[in-house]
Design a protein around this nucleic acid. Sequence first.
DNA 1: GGCTATTCGGATTATTTCTTCTTAAATACG
DNA 2: CGTATTTAAGAAGAAATAATCCGAATAGCC
Lengths: 149, 149
Amino acid sequence: MLFSTATGYALRALAALPEDGTYCLAKDLSSRLGLPGPYLAKILQGLVQADILASVRGPKGGFRLTRPAHRITVGEVVAAMEGPDAMEGCVMGFPACNGENPCPLHDAWSAVKSQVSSSMTQATIRDLQLINIRHQKEAKDRMPNTPQP
Amino acid sequence: MLFSTATGYALRALAALPEDGTYCLAKDLSSRLGLPGPYLAKILQGLVQADILASVRGPKGGFRLTRPAHRITVGEVVAAMEGPDAMEGCVMGFPACNGENPCPLHDAWSAVKSQVSSSMTQATIRDLQLINIRHQKEAKDRMPNTPQP
DNA sequence: GGCTATTCGGATTATTTCTTCTTAAATACG
DNA sequence: CGTATTTAAGAAGAAATAATCCGAATAGCC
């Protein structure tokens, strides 16, 4: 993966939140996604401080997005998790690599960076939600004889 | 960086080895490159087991490439360091992401992967050596009044 | 209003992985 | 055969990941 596991967890959690702004328990998220509960809780706290999530404690509390899902970009989340310049520097860590004296992967990587960066600023949490929805639908279609009420 | 620091160190060390197959000390490499000596030594050991380096211990010993630099690809080194499927899976770690149900970065990332992979299998250690050589030359040109004999 | 159950917030502690250091083994040379 | 040199391997430290615990805030109920 390109990013840290924590960033992956953050994105998966955000994509699993309900769209209607209902508060959602950290515990529910972790059990639903199969992620380590306490670790996820800490990640969610960080997202609150980054103003991506809002939290309320006490009964009926939990976490929700501060904005509609389509107003939160993937890039924003990555920046909050990994720091603003996560993709800087040479792919291979060569200090001598720069535009005038490029490493063999320099151009490929530059292209990659701008491509991924622009995709990240375009893609929103809403887009990620759709993956899960499609994924669930797909699973359902494969097994039409689901438990009846 | 795309890869781990250890992989970066490995590539930098390989690129700094003499071309003529002379044995080179781990200590020399680390001091020349400014890398932590013991850690680099361990990395070099791993490269020996991957049949990229050969080592001899004792006086006049050291490390050297098992093949000419242009016969060792960057991809081979990365695979030895990071495992064969270092770039597999979704960029964001989404389990639900696949070709039929892609995440918003899926296509961009796929393009990236094939681009970087092919660059990696084409680029060799020899190419990396050239960066350093150019880099040194450049530094020299900027400061023509170097110490005279 | 006060009590209680619920849920986040922060601190502390374990576990694993990554990095660095120390000691042991091997080789060449006198 | 002994000693200096150099890698090899295992031990120690640092950082990331994951778990646990208790305190603080909120909502609902009596």
